[in-house]
Structures are given as structure tokens and as C-alpha cells.
Amino acid sequence: LQLFIKTLTGKTSTVEMEPSDTIENLKAKIQDKEGIPPDQQRLIFAGKQLEDGRTLSDYNIQKESTLHLVL
């Protein structure tokens, strides 16, 4: 599924993920695209901070969801 990652600067990146992927996997993919180390990334979806060990489906993240990346 395609996700949009929006940064505080207003920049939006697109990443392709599976519902079974963990937040950790997602942060690794963001690191590949943006060069931001996972330990500096905080991802927010629906007002919640996402935890590394959980999966996208745990948070009911659907295709074309927008996640907010806070550093």
C-alpha cells in the first residue's frame, strides 16, 4: 500500500509498504529515502505516536494514509 509521509517542512514523500510491515520497517524505508536515522523519527497517525514493534495493520493504516514525521 502507498503511504504519504509528511514532514514539518510540508514536504511529502511516498513509500510503498505492506499492511504486515512494522513501524520499524517503515522508519528504515524513510531512512533510505530521506537519510533520517530511525531513532530520530517519530511518526504520528490519527494523533497517536506509532511504536516500532507494531504493524501498520495494528494501527489500521490504510492505503494512501498520510503519516506525520516529527524529528
Results as ranks from 00 to 15, higher is better:
residue 1 L to N: 04
residue 1 L to V: 10
residue 1 L to H: 04
residue 2 Q to N: 10
residue 2 Q to A: 08
residue 2 Q to S: 10
residue 2 Q to M: 14
residue 2 Q to C: 08
residue 3 L to K: 00
residue 3 L to S: 01
residue 3 L to M: 04
residue 3 L to Y: 03
residue 4 F to Q: 07
residue 4 F to L: 08
residue 5 I to A: 00
residue 5 I to M: 02
residue 5 I to C: 03
residue 6 K to L: 11
residue 6 K to R: 11
residue 6 K to P: 02
residue 7 T to W: 15
residue 7 T to D: 11
residue 7 T to P: 05
residue 7 T to I: 12
residue 8 L to W: 15
residue 8 L to N: 13
residue 8 L to V: 12
residue 8 L to Y: 13
residue 8 L to M: 13
residue 9 T to E: 12
residue 9 T to A: 12
residue 10 G to N: 05
residue 10 G to M: 04
residue 10 G to S: 03
residue 10 G to R: 03
residue 10 G to T: 03
residue 11 K to Q: 10
residue 11 K to P: 06
residue 11 K to D: 08
residue 11 K to S: 09
residue 11 K to R: 11
residue 12 T to A: 06
residue 12 T to F: 11
residue 12 T to W: 12
residue 12 T to D: 04
residue 12 T to E: 06
residue 12 T to V: 14
residue 12 T to L: 12
residue 13 S to H: 15
residue 13 S to F: 15
residue 13 S to T: 15
residue 13 S to G: 05
residue 14 T to A: 09
residue 14 T to K: 10
residue 15 V to C: 03
residue 15 V to T: 02
residue 15 V to R: 00
residue 15 V to Q: 03
residue 15 V to G: 01
residue 16 E to H: 13
residue 16 E to N: 11
residue 16 E to A: 10
residue 16 E to K: 08
residue 16 E to D: 10
residue 16 E to R: 11
residue 17 M to E: 00
residue 17 M to D: 00
residue 17 M to L: 07
residue 17 M to K: 01
residue 17 M to A: 13
residue 17 M to S: 05
residue 18 E to W: 13
residue 18 E to S: 13
residue 19 P to L: 12
residue 20 S to L: 09
residue 20 S to N: 12
residue 20 S to R: 08
residue 20 S to K: 08
residue 21 D to L: 03
residue 21 D to V: 02
residue 21 D to Q: 07
residue 21 D to I: 03
residue 21 D to C: 04
residue 21 D to K: 03
residue 21 D to P: 00
residue 21 D to S: 09
residue 22 T to R: 07
residue 22 T to C: 03
residue 22 T to V: 05
residue 22 T to Q: 04
residue 22 T to K: 07
residue 22 T to P: 04
residue 22 T to M: 06
residue 23 I to G: 01
residue 23 I to D: 00
residue 23 I to N: 00
residue 23 I to T: 04
residue 24 E to P: 02
residue 24 E to W: 14
residue 24 E to Y: 14
residue 24 E to K: 12
residue 24 E to F: 14
residue 24 E to H: 10
residue 24 E to Q: 12
residue 25 N to C: 08
residue 25 N to I: 12
residue 25 N to P: 00
residue 25 N to L: 14
residue 25 N to M: 15
residue 26 L to Y: 00
residue 26 L to G: 00
residue 26 L to M: 04
residue 26 L to S: 00
residue 26 L to E: 02
residue 26 L to I: 07
residue 26 L to K: 01
residue 27 K to F: 02
residue 27 K to L: 03
residue 27 K to Y: 03
residue 27 K to E: 01
residue 28 A to Q: 13
residue 28 A to S: 10
residue 28 A to E: 09
residue 28 A to R: 14
residue 28 A to M: 13
residue 28 A to D: 06
residue 28 A to G: 09
residue 28 A to P: 00
residue 28 A to T: 10
residue 29 K to D: 02
residue 29 K to W: 11
residue 29 K to P: 00
residue 29 K to G: 03
residue 29 K to I: 09
residue 30 I to P: 00
residue 30 I to S: 00
residue 30 I to L: 09
residue 30 I to T: 00
residue 30 I to A: 01
residue 30 I to K: 00
residue 30 I to Q: 00
residue 30 I to F: 03
residue 30 I to V: 05
residue 30 I to D: 01
residue 31 Q to H: 14
residue 31 Q to K: 09
residue 31 Q to Y: 15
residue 31 Q to F: 15
residue 31 Q to P: 01
residue 32 D to I: 13
residue 32 D to R: 10
residue 32 D to S: 12
residue 32 D to Q: 14
residue 33 K to I: 15
residue 33 K to W: 09
residue 34 E to R: 06
residue 34 E to C: 14
residue 34 E to M: 15
residue 34 E to W: 15
residue 34 E to I: 15
residue 35 G to K: 06
residue 35 G to I: 02
residue 36 I to D: 02
residue 36 I to T: 06
residue 36 I to C: 04
residue 36 I to P: 04
residue 36 I to L: 06
residue 36 I to V: 08
residue 36 I to S: 03
residue 37 P to M: 06
residue 37 P to R: 08
residue 37 P to C: 05
residue 37 P to F: 05
residue 38 P to M: 15
residue 38 P to K: 15
residue 38 P to E: 07
residue 38 P to T: 14
residue 39 D to N: 11
residue 39 D to A: 12
residue 39 D to R: 10
residue 39 D to P: 06
residue 39 D to F: 11
residue 39 D to G: 10
residue 39 D to M: 09
residue 40 Q to R: 12
residue 40 Q to E: 11
residue 40 Q to F: 09
residue 40 Q to V: 11
residue 40 Q to A: 08
residue 40 Q to G: 06
residue 41 Q to N: 02
residue 41 Q to K: 01
residue 41 Q to W: 08
residue 41 Q to P: 01
residue 41 Q to I: 13
residue 42 R to L: 14
residue 42 R to C: 11
residue 42 R to F: 12
residue 42 R to A: 08
residue 42 R to G: 05
residue 43 L to S: 00
residue 43 L to E: 01
residue 43 L to Y: 07
residue 43 L to A: 00
residue 43 L to T: 00
residue 44 I to G: 03
residue 44 I to D: 04
residue 44 I to T: 08
residue 44 I to L: 11
residue 45 F to I: 04
residue 45 F to M: 05
residue 45 F to H: 06
residue 45 F to E: 01
residue 45 F to C: 02
residue 45 F to T: 01
residue 45 F to N: 02
residue 45 F to Q: 02
residue 46 A to L: 12
residue 47 G to H: 05
residue 47 G to M: 04
residue 47 G to V: 02
residue 48 K to S: 09
residue 48 K to G: 06
residue 48 K to L: 12
residue 48 K to N: 09
residue 48 K to A: 09
residue 48 K to T: 13
residue 48 K to H: 12
residue 48 K to R: 11
residue 48 K to Y: 10
residue 49 Q to D: 13
residue 49 Q to A: 11
residue 49 Q to I: 15
residue 49 Q to L: 15
residue 49 Q to V: 15
residue 49 Q to M: 13
residue 50 L to I: 04
residue 50 L to Q: 00
residue 50 L to R: 00
residue 50 L to W: 01
residue 50 L to N: 00
residue 50 L to Y: 00
residue 50 L to F: 01
residue 51 E to P: 02
residue 51 E to F: 06
residue 52 D to A: 07
residue 52 D to G: 07
residue 52 D to M: 05
residue 52 D to N: 11
residue 52 D to F: 03
residue 52 D to V: 06
residue 52 D to Y: 05
residue 53 G to K: 11
residue 53 G to S: 11
residue 53 G to I: 07
residue 53 G to L: 06
residue 53 G to Q: 10
residue 54 R to F: 13
residue 54 R to C: 08
residue 55 T to C: 04
residue 55 T to D: 02
residue 55 T to Y: 07
residue 55 T to I: 08
residue 56 L to V: 04
residue 56 L to E: 00
residue 56 L to P: 02
residue 56 L to C: 02
residue 56 L to K: 01
residue 56 L to W: 02
residue 57 S to E: 12
residue 57 S to R: 12
residue 57 S to I: 09
residue 58 D to W: 13
residue 58 D to T: 05
residue 58 D to G: 04
residue 58 D to N: 05
residue 59 Y to L: 05
residue 59 Y to N: 02
residue 59 Y to D: 01
residue 59 Y to G: 01
residue 59 Y to W: 02
residue 59 Y to V: 02
residue 60 N to C: 05
residue 60 N to M: 08
residue 60 N to R: 07
residue 60 N to I: 05
residue 60 N to S: 11
residue 60 N to E: 07
residue 60 N to A: 08
residue 61 I to R: 01
residue 61 I to S: 02
residue 61 I to N: 02
residue 62 Q to R: 09
residue 62 Q to K: 12
residue 62 Q to F: 09
residue 62 Q to I: 12
residue 62 Q to L: 11
residue 62 Q to E: 11
residue 62 Q to M: 12
residue 63 K to Y: 10
residue 63 K to F: 10
residue 63 K to R: 12
residue 63 K to D: 15
residue 63 K to I: 06
residue 63 K to H: 15
residue 63 K to V: 07
residue 64 E to P: 05
residue 64 E to A: 11
residue 65 S to R: 03
residue 65 S to H: 06
residue 65 S to V: 07
residue 65 S to Q: 08
residue 65 S to E: 08
residue 66 T to M: 07
residue 66 T to V: 14
residue 66 T to N: 04
residue 66 T to R: 04
residue 66 T to Y: 06
residue 67 L to F: 04
residue 67 L to K: 01
residue 68 H to V: 14
residue 68 H to N: 07
residue 68 H to P: 01
residue 69 L to I: 06
residue 69 L to R: 00
residue 69 L to W: 02
residue 69 L to Y: 02
residue 69 L to G: 00
residue 69 L to V: 06
residue 70 V to G: 05
residue 70 V to E: 10
residue 70 V to D: 07
residue 70 V to A: 07
residue 71 L to H: 08
residue 71 L to C: 06
residue 71 L to F: 10
